[in-house]
Design a protein around this nucleic acid. Structure first.
Lengths: 121, 121
DNA sequence: AGTCTGATTTGACATCTGTCAACCTAGAGA
DNA sequence: TCTCTAGGTTGACAGATGTCAAATCAGACT
């Protein structure tokens, strides 16, 4: 698709193009490809609650057993959502004895936050 | 699901549960339901580039014609992604003459950013 | 060994999503 | 009016996603 509303049709200078060239791509395609999955992982109400519960839990970590108690979904479903968050680099899990504890990985979260602040100016 | 790692077996009080009750739900189910769609909208590389281009454009707004030039996708597809961002409350479009200009709605973006900062502590 | 419990994996299903071709709508201009 | 262009809408399709039941895995305890 072109712009330039027929520059030079009969009139010499038909004024400006419709907008700026957008050359200053703040987010490169590569960066978008890397960060979008993390936003996508947060794009589910259940996962948003999960990461919130983990972050706000005492000691910054929570075990699956209590998460399961607080969310009315089947075990496999919760496990699936935790996996999505894990593969997005947002949380990490560690087994200690009988239970598995999850905690938030702040690096990825702050990376997302920085990108949002960039969009607000 | 119960906890109680059998600390002090044979003793009457079986000591602590496996973790904290998670009563301090930082993000309510209702809030999660409201904000998740916005994260979901950002969870696509194309849309991440779109909102970045709009935010970084001169004057904080960009018309579709230049966006189309910068992204190698069909017109309908770009229109679809802009609609998703619009319905998520992240951007807004306004027609001025021939072209339609989009700009970022900072309220929603900052709301997301606040939630992320909450997760990092 | 055997068993019990916490958590993940697998398989299946309905629903949702990204993409494009074809068509439609809204202004601008002659 | 008629035409041209910028965008959006519709319809269709392959692929991804959320959910659960059933099976499996990993420790702890006997």
């Amino acid at each position: 698709m072109s712009k330039q509303p027929a520059v030079l049709t009969l009139t010499p200078v038909v004024a400006e193009a419709c907008c700026t060239p957008l050359t200053s791509a703040a987010v490169t395609p590569a960066a978008a490809e890397e960060l979008a999955p993390a936003f996508k992982a947060l794009g589910d109400p259940v996962r948003l609650r999960l990461i919130s519960m983990i972050a706000s839990a005492e000691g910054g970590e929570a075990c699956v057993c209590d998460i399961s108690d607080s969310i009315d979904l089947s075990g496999p479903t919760i496990s699936h959502h935790l996996k999505v968050l894990r593969e997005a680099g947002l949380i990490d899990g560690e087994r200690r004895g009988t239970w598995i504890y999850y905690r938030v990985l702040p690096e990825k979260v702050t990376a997302l936050s920085r990108l949002l602040n960039l969009a607000t100016g």
